[in-house]
Amino acid sequence: MTLVYGLITGILFGILLQKAQVLRYDKQVGAMRFLDMTIFKFMLSSIIVSSIGIYLLNDMGFVKLSVKGTEVGAQILGGSLFGVGWALLGYCPGTAVGALGEGRLDGFWGIIGMLCGAALYAEAYPFIKAKILPLGNFGKATLPQALGVSHWLVIIVFAVITLAMFFLFEKKKV
């Protein structure tokens, strides 16, 4: 049943990604070049809605958060490499798969490259685990915890900043 849920969720998400036109190199690199903010509109809308919903369910005890560890060294280095790769490919892992689904063959070469990157990571893992993961390791930290404030304050501030950005996007027509 878990597998069926995965498939249905993936299909619905794939439809939404396709309809929003975010499965396109032109849109993704367009966002990096501040020419077209479609990706930001899609992602930030999704984050606002889901953070409110998931924290509401969390407060009521219906769901459990899945907090990732904060490893500053690995995340700065990994995030930077991800940025370089994302700019060259023009798709992130999920959108490369979706791009292939709407006929974009460069997505396929990206997927093959990603499988190689994943295999390479597994080979390099002993070194990474010993030397890089321990750099600036804060464990499972969240912003509300670190600031010592309610998570709702963080969500409200985030939502206000995001809505201001949306207003700017619409004004500039990007």
């Binding site: 990732k68 560890g69 690995a74 940025g83 370089v84 490259g113 990603m114 990157g117 890089i132």
Partner: peptide, 25 residues
Amino acid sequence: SPLKRGIVAFFGGGIGMFGARLAGG
């Protein structure tokens, strides 16, 4: 050139995935 695009896409995917795994996501 699809070859040029394919090669850059391949290496972009490889670097991006290595970075994503390193950053934990």
